[in-house]
Design a protein around this nucleic acid. Structure first.
Length: 419
RNA sequence: GCCCCCAUCGACUAGCGGCCCAGGUCACGGCCCUUUCAAGGCCGUAGCGCGGGUUCGAAUCCCGCUGGGGGCACCA
């Protein structure tokens, strides 16, 4: 039997990272088995749905590298079919009308249960189930009717969704049974928390895919990190390519307890990916990122700066603050400047030929010897004068890139304002 | 209130009765390297929620408790 799953976001604004993790599990599961992965928008409620948010959802998924088969479908499009099926159930005596709405009869004894692919056997006492509204009095189907109905019509074999749907499952199982449908395999993945044991939300940090993108995370890292939230191939492996993720993913190894989103670990992992890119690719990504964020800095200069920061920043978003001195003026803090050292540095640097990092290094080292000081006591002043900060990329490379003229004029200017 | 789910270092997890006085990764601490910051190397702190069982033997199985989460709509 070939596998078919579906990702079913509700079109309420942005794409939440917790939901993305669930979609990722669907996607990895399907792709790992040569199956299909559908994208279905769950909008039985017309008032809330917005075309724009659907477009945003699609854009976010694509950016992450999650694709889907066929056209995006809308739950609402099958309203007619839902009404038809509901009427059929009434005719068969399995449902009944109630003040203009149609309700299904729930069994009133025994249990309704299933073998959850992640949580194992789950059962609900039938007495807990109330006769569910299938179709509202205004004719629109409810979620708990439309969703299983569509799963059936679409031939969904595995419903992999959030934990919060566990209590909907018995209802949907009854609906499916009444419809005469073979129920799919259900797999309920635990929630994602933010540090305090509460559902991940804005107060914990970034939550939408767009925010992570804007902060300079790369999709490979985000995907790798998300995959490991609640799933592990073994106890050792942490860095895995998209292909490896697909190959190794399995529902059996998804844990049943909720996971906490650890931003620090994501940062670390993003750094691992950033450092692993070949220099040209790193530069490509950096340029694309800065363009996306609206920086109009010259591309050649960004490319030249890329190697200076690749080992040092963990998110592309750190680039402007870290290497911005290469693209605009600086305002060094006078109290961090030493005019004597700066004048000596100016003198030493004037004669450097050619203006390259290695020659600059020689000159500066020689200066240190001359002054009888350690680099650590003479460099800070120069660094601050030239980069505007005590933290920066390598000093020699920074000076080279900046050019002799700019470098010297910054040093001169700094010397004159030094405290 | 009722129903359902969950429970290993601060975090993600490995562990599916003996190989575990519990392993890996992040974070944290120390040392080394070092022009700052990173990166890298080495070392370290830290955990099976509690109480009963079952068993020769339990982190692993069972029961209870406690704690956390989710759900009880003509929302999705």
């Amino acid at each position: 039997m070939s596998v078919r799953v579906r990702m079913a976001p509700s079109p309420t604004g942005f794409l939440h990272i917790g939901g993305v993790r669930t979609f990722l599990f669907n996607w990895l599961f399907a792709r790992g088995r040569g199956g299909e992965c559908l994208l279905r928008i769950e909008n039985t409620d017309t008032s809330r749905e917005v075309a724009e948010s659907v477009a945003q959802i699609e854009r976010s998924l694509r950016w992450l590298g999650i694709d889907w088969d066929g056209e995006t479908t809308f739950q609402l499009d099958r309203m007619g079919r839902a009404q038809e099926e509901a009427r059929r159930l009434v005719a068969e005596g399995k449902a009944y009308e109630d003040e203009g709405a149609i309700r299904i009869r729930m069994p009133d004894e025994g249990v309704v249960g299933w073998e959850d692919a992640i949580k194992g056997r789950i059962e609900f006492p039938a007495a807990e189930l109330e006769d569910l509204v299938l179709v509202r009095s205004d004719g629109r189907p409810t979620y708990n009717f439309a969703s299983p109905l569509e799963d059936w019509l679409d031939g969904i074999t595995h419903v992999i969704r959030g934990d919060d749907h566990v209590s909907n499952t018995p209802k949907q199982l009854v609906v499916l049974r009444a419809l005469g449908a073979e129920p799919p395999v259900y797999a309920h993945v635990p929630n994602v928390f933010g540090g305090d044991g509460k559902k991940l939300s804005k107060r914990h940090g970034a939550v939408s895919v767009d925010e992570f993108r804007a902060a300079g995370y790369v999709p490979e890292a985000l995907m790798n990190f998300l995959a490991l939230l609640g799933w592990a191939p073994d106890g050792e492996t942490t860095i895995m390519s998209r292909e490896e993720l697909i190959e190794r993913f399995s529902l059996e190894r998804v844990g049943s307890s909720p996971a906490t989103f650890d931003y620090a670990k994501l940062d670390w992992m993003n750094g691992v990916y950033l450092r692993s890119f070949p220099p040209e690719e790193y530069a490509d990504r950096l340029v694309a990122y800065l363009r996306e964020q609206g920086y109009d800095w010259p591309e050649e200069r960004i490319r030249a700066a890329a190697p200076l920061v690749q080992e040092k920043i963990t998110r592309l978003g750190e680039f402007p603050a870290f290497a911005g001195f290469l693209f605009g003026d600086v305002e060094p803090d006078p109290s961090l400047l030493d005019s004597r050292i700066l004048r000596e540095a100016e003198r030493a640097l004037e004669r450097v030929e050619p203006w390259r990092a290695d020659a600059i290094e020689q000159a500066l080292k020689a200066l240190c010897d001359e002054l009888g000081e350690k680099p650590r006591s003479v460099y800070p002043s120069i660094r601050v004068a030239v980069t505007g900060s005590r933290v920066s990329p390598g000093l020699y490379e920074s000076l080279e890139l900046l050019g002799r003229e700019t470098a010297l004029s910054r040093i001169r200017a700094a010397a004159s304002v030094a405290a």
